[in-house]
């Protein structure tokens, strides 16, 4: 398990998210730990239901009941924030952690002009008067690349296209210069041609401002393009986490391997894309041992009974028993 490092901006330790229901307790996120360094873009990738969005929601304290953090800690700049009262956490949201959601078409209130929504957010967090806030709102709109910001600021969300709205959403997330942005599938609802623009805008802005990003997506292409590191989630656990080049080029976990094999590459002719047989288990049917064992092509006896912990391999960490031997061998060699 990784140790909390001093320079980490955000540190998630042994986070467990549960959904109590009539039949018992569903564990949606089970004992995950990771760090995000200042200015770093961490990609979080996985299938629907892997727990990636829930992790993001838990960090900003907006898990929807009955979902709850059952165990673990979330530490922002050395301060534990997961057990703060609502009002305290509200002051952190938008100010120190910004958020961007999946669908820009529905993220903005249709009844208010984008300027009003920007000014409202700015004034919530910064001690500016109406006029100063408007100036800042204009700057933000220009910064996210909205042409004619002076005129557009008084327009309503329905007067913007999807890509433009997502730019407004990014401006809203950047209002108070947060240190971290949780971007939950920021491009999934957009046209493919727009996706790349938004990703490069997000990447550029965060680089300029030194803002770290937790980029939740199921699109490996987006991860490969934007992220510094990537965490692969499966059934509420982290299967593999490491530098993006290493995870993409030399995937270690059989699941990651399968994910990478399922991406078509331009210029490489293959007769058939590999695919991972079966589907991710439902929350109430997660098998004992490694949750991936029913689908794994390299499954061993051990995988059926013992849950693998994350262990360091090269610069990554992998939760897979395949690497136990390597670790043991290295230990025996001393």
């Amino acid at each position: 398990m990784p140790k909390p490092s001093n320079q980490a901006l955000l540190s998630v330790r042994n986070l467990r998210i549960e959904f109590p229901n009539r039949r018992g307790i569903l564990v949606a996120v089970d004992d995950i730990s990771f760090d995000i360094a200042p200015g770093e873009i961490l990609g979080v990738v996985g299938e629907s239901g892997a727990g990636k969005s829930l992790t993001g929601a838990a960090i900003i304290g907006l898990l929807e009941p009955p979902g709850r953090i059952a165990r673990g800690e979330i530490i922002l700049e050395g301060e534990r924030i997961d057990h703060l009262p609502y009002e305290e956490l509200r002051k952190i949201r938008g100010r120190r952690i910004g958020a961007i959601f999946q669908d820009p078409l529905t993220s903005l209130n249709p009844l208010y002009s984008v300027g009003r929504q920007l000014i409202e957010t700015i004034q919530t967090h910064l001690p500016l008067n109406e006029r100063e806030a408007r100036v800042r709102a204009l700057e933000l709109l220009e910064e996210v690349g909205i042409p004619g910001a002076e005129e557009r600021i008084d327009h309503y969300p329905h007067q913007f296209s999807g890509g433009m709205r997502q730019r407004v959403v990014i401006a809203l997330a950047l209002c108070a210069e947060p240190r971290l942005i949780i971007a939950d599938e920021p491009t999934t609802a957009l046209d493919v041609s727009i996706q790349a623009q938004i990703i490069s805008l997000l990447k550029g802005l965060c680089h300029e401002h030194g803002t770290a990003v937790m980029l939740v997506t199921h699109d490996m292409g987006v991860i490969a393009e934007a992220a510094d590191r990537v965490a692969v989630m499966y059934s509420g656990r982290i299967a593999e986490i490491g530098p993006v080049q290493e995870v993409v080029r030399t995937a270690k976990h059989p699941y990651t391997h399968g994910l990478m094999g399922s991406i078509p590459h331009i210029g490489h002719h293959v007769d058939q894309l590999t695919q991972i047989e079966g589907s991710m288990p439902r929350l109430q049917e997660i098998p004992t041992g490694c949750p991936f064992n029913p689908r794994c092509i390299q499954v061993m006896d051990r995988c059926l009974v013992e849950r693998p912990d994350l262990q360091g391999v090269d610069q990554s960490e992998v939760a897979c028993h395949l690497f136990d031997e390597a670790g043991l061998a290295a230990g025996a060699g001393e």
Binding site: I60, L62, R90, K91, I92, R93, G94, R95, G98, A99, F101, Q102, D103, T106, S107, L108, N109, P110, L111, Y112, E120, T121, T124, H125, V169, L172, A173, C175, A176
Partner: peptide
């Protein structure tokens, strides 16, 4: 339940602003 209310909360707006300014008006 809508996204823009979730987003309003994620922007750190006060409960009063979210409930009355954004939700009730809609």
């Amino acid at each position: 339940r809508t996204d823009f209310i979730k987003f309003a909360r994620a922007r750190g707006l006060s409960n009063r602003a979210v409930n009355y300014g954004h939700a009730l008006k809609n």
